[in-house]
């Protein structure tokens, strides 16, 4: 399968801090690729660099063979990349409908996709006219994912969709993401290793701003020393329990 996204040795700074020190990864078309690593390893910054929100100073990013580094975020998004940021950055003052509508790139995008969205997330149909801020955490996460589905995105960057959610809601999100993979390629950042291992085909491990390991997810699950080394001992036990709910 050709790679839809190739990141080649990017270096990204936030202020004076050198956050990414040479991250490289390749995302095959149609796959779910997980980006793993400890807190502060640079996973979120990698997604933001791809999206053009923290542009890298060095290195190359190619989307569908075309270099996109140096472009502004809206140009990158318009090429067909959807971004589901951490902490469910939905627009709290906007209704569910408006939250979806704002993601339209052409008139009628939402109408085309609404069946799929409501099938994945029936709750959104129920609360269509409610302000996003009044939804529960899980519903907000669903809205954030649904928003990335409205335009015809070929690649979705999903950042920690399970964060702060109850296990039962995580399951719903997992089911949705799995369905979603039939429509688009997914690059998933996830702290919850169990969830990542259930979803992803391939993985990359980041450590201290560098990509240190990659391979097939099926191999990683049985490689306890590797998991312990880069992801922490807590991940090594089987079955791996979801991380406890965190408050913001």
């Amino acid at each position: 399968m050709p790679n839809i996204l190739e990141v080649d040795g990017i270096h990204t700074f936030i202020g004076q801090f050198h956050i990414l020190e040479g991250v490289s990864l390749a995302v095959p078309q149609g796959s779910i690729t997980a980006l793993l690593g400890r807190n502060g390893a640079g996973k979120t910054t990698t997604l933001r660099s791809i999206m053009g929100l923290n542009p890298p100073r060095e290195g190359a990013i190619r989307y569908a063979g075309e270099p996109i580094q140096g472009k502004t975020a809206f140009q990158i998004a318009a090429k067909g990349i959807g971004y589901v940021p951490e902490y469910r950055a939905i627009f709290r003052a906007l209704t569910v409908e408006e939250n979806l509508k704002i993601a339209e790139r052409q008139k009628g995008d939402l109408a085309k996709r609404s069946d799929l969205i409501f099938e994945l997330f029936p709750d959104l149909k129920r609360f269509y006219r409610l302000p996003g801020g009044q939804l529960s955490g899980g519903q907000q996460q669903m809205l954030a994912i649904a928003r990335a589905l409205v335009p015809d995105n070929r690649l979705l960057l999903v950042d920690e969709p399970s964060e702060g959610l109850a296990p039962i809601i995580i399951e719903a999100i997992v089911a949705a993401l799995r369905q979603l993979a039939s429509h688009a390629t997914v690059l998933l950042v996830e702290q919850n290793f169990r969830m990542a291992s259930m979803l992803a085909d391939r993985y990359y491990i980041l450590d201290d701003g560098q990509s240190v390991h990659s391979g097939q997810m099926a191999d990683l699950v049985n490689d306890r020393p590797l998991i312990t080394k880069y992801l922490g001992a807590g991940y090594a036990g089987t079955p791996v329990t979801p991380t406890p709910e965190r408050s913001n």
Partner: peptide, 8 residues
């Protein structure tokens, strides 16, 4: 920033 990331 999020609006920008939606392609606007």
């Amino acid at each position: 920033e999020m609006v920008q990331a939606l392609g606007i």
